[in-house]
Design a protein around this nucleic acid. Structure first.
Lengths: 200, 200
DNA sequence: AAAAATTGGTTCCACAAGGAATTGACTGTC
DNA sequence: GACAGTCAATTCCTTGTGGAACCAATTTTT
């Protein structure tokens, strides 16, 4: 998260990489050669939830710089760029759908949509049949933002995958796909319920 | 991730799963059989940054429920539990180290440490040599929290990995390790710089 | 056909979390 | 040995974000 700002820059926070023993020896030895603090080492390699630790770490190291750049370059908050990115993937989607799929609160999306519209990056068109919902779509300006940003996102992914051979990438992709797919069968998210008020 | 609250419950937000083509056909067909909204489908399978999309998704689906449960069960915010978890991994660490490694702001950590201390979950011991820093450690109560929570974290990871055979898990672990390791060589994070003030 | 329930989107409000500035402790330099 | 620079931790201030309440459009129930 994490990772950018607004009028008063405010890091979108990290909250991506923290939890999560690797079958020991997979790379721990390699890593220890690095001048890396002992704790980060422990977090990644002596963690009872090593798999989780690793994808959390990847998410952090991926999102952090990219959204930071988006903020700097376009003055857009993470959530706002997510909307643009979403529309590029599926034009005419509604705010609710983005909310459901990305797990951002719907009011947060409402704000992002409003601002993007004001800035001229997207257009809203209320459905003639169900006048509650409005279909969103990218304006040329919005598409331009996307066009400029995409290469960065692709490049960083490329960079991260660089140490892997083509076959390895395929394998990694397939394995992760398998995991993701199975999660859909278990069933889609379900926003966490209002937790008990904290006692202190 | 997302995902929990405080006095006034406040989701720690999603911001984990949004961006990120898969070599097409890896599982897209499989997924389309699911009653899954078109958009989420597009996000995961027709995304120019498919790898990123997938680990972001995994992070979301992992952190979301777990930290939600932590909040409900212990009344602890994500960051607070992260501290507990970190101390279980490496006792006697300092707040700064956790901050550096997890990319949470240091004042955020300061608050978490303060509260955890007040609740009796951790103890702080100022270094005799350098009296600026204080070494943190888990109290029995704090360790109890960890002991109770850990199985949940492990279990969800298990559950996520369930569709994979043992060999596949090894492979996935190794490949992800390779990627993570390479990121250390590139060099450790570096907090994003203050972005330009947004113009609107 | 009216009332009740649901849903997309918005507004209000409270709070958690980050940036900047501060304090107190240490290190290095001349 | 004082002065500047650094660093861990904290406090202050601002703002982004989520929950709850709300509105309006739609659907379902009786």
């Amino acid at each position: 998260m994490m990772v950018l700002s607004r009028p008063k820059p405010q890091e979108t926070s990290a909250n991506d990489a923290e939890i999560g023993t690797l079958p020991e020896g997979t790379g721990a030895d390699l890593l220890s050669r690095q001048r890396l603090d002992a704790f980060t080492h422990a977090r990644l390699w002596k963690n009872p939830c090593g798999f989780a630790a690793r994808f959390n770490y990847l998410a952090l190291r991926y999102n952090q710089p990219l959204y930071g750049w988006v903020e700097e370059r376009f003055g857009l908050a993470r959530i706002e760029f997510v909307v643009i990115f979403s529309l590029s993937l599926q034009d005419g989607i509604t705010a609710s759908e983005i909310s459901a799929s990305t797990a951002f609160a719907k009011n947060t999306l409402s704000r992002a949509v409003k601002r993007l519209n004001k800035l001229g990056y997207i257009m809203r068109r209320t459905d003639a049949i169900d006048r509650r919902q409005q279909f969103l779509s990218l304006s040329p300006a919005g598409r331009a933002v996307y066009e400029e940003a995409l290469p960065r996102f692709v490049a960083l992914e490329e960079e991260m995958l660089a140490p892997l051979s083509l076959v390895e990438r395929e394998t990694l992709s397939a394995l992760m796909a398998k995991v993701v797919l199975a999660m859909f069968e278990v069933d889609v998210p379900e926003r966490t319920p209002p937790p008990s008020r904290r006692e202190n």
